[in-house]
Simulated scan of single mutants.
Amino acid sequence: MTCSLGVPLIVIGSMNLTRTLARGDFSCPHCGRLQAYRLRARRPFLTVYLIPMIPLGDRERFVQCQQCRNRFDPAVLERDSPSTSRLTASNSSAAEAFEQQWLRAALLVVIEHGQMTEPEIAALQRIGTQLAHRPVEREELGQLCSSAYQNRISAKHYVQSVAHLWSDEQKQTVMQACFLAASIDGDLQPPQMELLQTLKQEMQLTDEEFQQAIEAAVELE
């Protein structure tokens, strides 16, 4: 292909390459039974003439049930393992991992209805700062948002994947973040209220624990 001046045009673009890393059986949270799964990795590449040349980011892994086709975080594969340990704040890496998890859960609540708006980005940054006690940069949110859109894991399925890692106190933090995210636009609408109830059930919170989390979140506003 050449331009009007006879100079060859270099066609540059991007594409996502997804490959299967492993196969096996797991207890699918959606199906409620043992199902076959594929552990897959997606990575964006810069392309030249449609040929992938340069990776543009890290690999994003997800688990896909072969029956219902829903996607889950890879942590779902450890959900039924008796040796799985909960995340604690006893070391910085565990604390950082948990921060990423509740922030991702909150972000997924926001994009449940579609694309994220500028006011929602600003609100998520504020929520992150309130709960993490540190500034949450747009770049961090952008990376999480890109991963969420590409991997297409819903808020419900994400919580199903990782809730087994959380202590009771951490579950309340996650619920606070999700409540604040659901109420970004003002009053909670029926879809947001239903989603919060679903997340409450997935985290096995009692009515009292749920109410305590909501009250703590309201105090932050």
Rank of each mutant, 00 (worst) to 15 (best):
D207F: 02
E139D: 15
H164A: 06
C3D: 13
H113G: 09
M53G: 02
S14L: 09
H113P: 07
L124R: 05
A22H: 13
P74T: 00
L103M: 07
I121F: 12
E169V: 10
F98I: 04
Q189Y: 04
A216N: 12
E60Y: 08
D185N: 14
I127T: 02
Q67A: 07
E139N: 14
L5G: 14
L50S: 14
Q35R: 15
L165S: 06
L56H: 05
V162L: 05
Q64H: 06
G32M: 07
H133R: 15
R38C: 12
L17E: 14
I153T: 05
R152Y: 00
E169H: 15
S93G: 09
P82G: 01
Q211K: 08
E194C: 07
P55G: 01
S81H: 11
H157N: 12
T84F: 00
D207I: 02
V136W: 11
E78L: 14
L34E: 14
E99S: 12
Q115C: 10
E78Q: 12
P135H: 01
R79H: 08
Q130V: 04
T117C: 01
R86Y: 03
A217I: 03
E209D: 08
I127S: 07
E112D: 12
N151Y: 03
L103V: 02
L188D: 03
Q170E: 10
V7F: 14
T20H: 07
E96Q: 15
H113W: 07
R61E: 15
A95H: 12
C68R: 03
F72Y: 08
A75V: 00
P29C: 02
F98K: 05
Q115I: 05
R23T: 09
S154D: 01
L17W: 09
E209V: 01
Q115F: 11
G24N: 05
G32S: 10
T117D: 09
S4Q: 15
L188F: 02
E60L: 13
